[in-house]
Amino acid sequence: MDRRDVLKLGAVATLGGSGCAGLLSNPSAVGASELDGFLSSLDGAMASISGGQFFDTFLPAQKSPALAARAEHGEALAKKTLRSLLLVGTLQELPPEHLAHEGVQQRLRESMGEFDDAMFGMTSMLEQLSPTDRAELSAALKEDPQLGMKVMSGVDEQAATFGVSLKQRTRLRALSTQACSRLRQSPDLLIAEYTGKMHKVAARHGGRSEAQRAAAASIGSALLWQSQPPDGEAVGGSEGLTPPPPPPPQTDVNETRGSALPAPQDAAPERRGPRASHVLLTTGGIALGLTAVSVGLGFATASSGFGVFLFTLGAILGVTGLLVLIIGLILLAVGK
């Protein structure tokens, strides 16, 4: 495969291949009267990601069953991740008062399942890289230490073309620099460190109710509670305003490493709601050392209850997704 094609793939994938991003280039300036139109544009961009074909162009026509299965899985995961990234990244930039808008909240609620799939799918994909994949990754980076940055440079160029906001592109640049720098030192170590940390934190801070309480305590505001319906189940929990239980016991990372989806320890399945999205609330923030910042944002958006959620999800998907994107594209670039 031509390297340029690989870059294009990355760009197309990251941006959803839509060109709709131009409409979303400056979410922070969206006024109240423009919000519905803005959300329609966002839906359009999300739909174009769903309808895109990212892998077919770049894979051989005659695929082995194993490669075909892998490509199918990869494409599905890529779409979920990109949709999640686009949604979270874009909504995160909206003025805080718009986060309480029903249309925004509805889109977030409906996407929670996809968020989970993206999050854990990405982590799982990192873990499942075979020793051969990892060796080839190391070899490729040794041969051309700038390969990761070349991939991301192409992505950034396309981002500029599509009118992605400067804030998002600056963030992409910062994350890319960090990820590529670490990746260049040791892909194995970075992947192991990241996935290990993910499991450890997910196991320790998995409860939605715990996340709610932590946010409420930090915010110290009645706003969060005001946003809950009387039965306390607005965001999927069913514990209402009961006092918080004792913190869950610490979990040894070795116990959870390698398991597909570590179960939160402080909530029974039936009380966790339909999906495990809540794990992200604290996982993302703690894994990235962003708890304080996310609480700050949570304060700003307390009335919607989604402040912490948006920030941590965006951050963690940003890093994991980026890591997978870079690794995947590097492997594609070297003909894997």
């Binding site: 700038q146 940055m149 070349k150 991301m152 440079s153 950034d156 160029e157 500029a160 400067l166 592109r169 600056t170 640049r173 890319s176 620099t177």
Partner: peptide, 8 residues
């Protein structure tokens, strides 16, 4: 970012 400086 504003200068569109290539990262590679």
């Amino acid at each position: 970012t504003r200068a569109e400086v290539p990262m590679h």
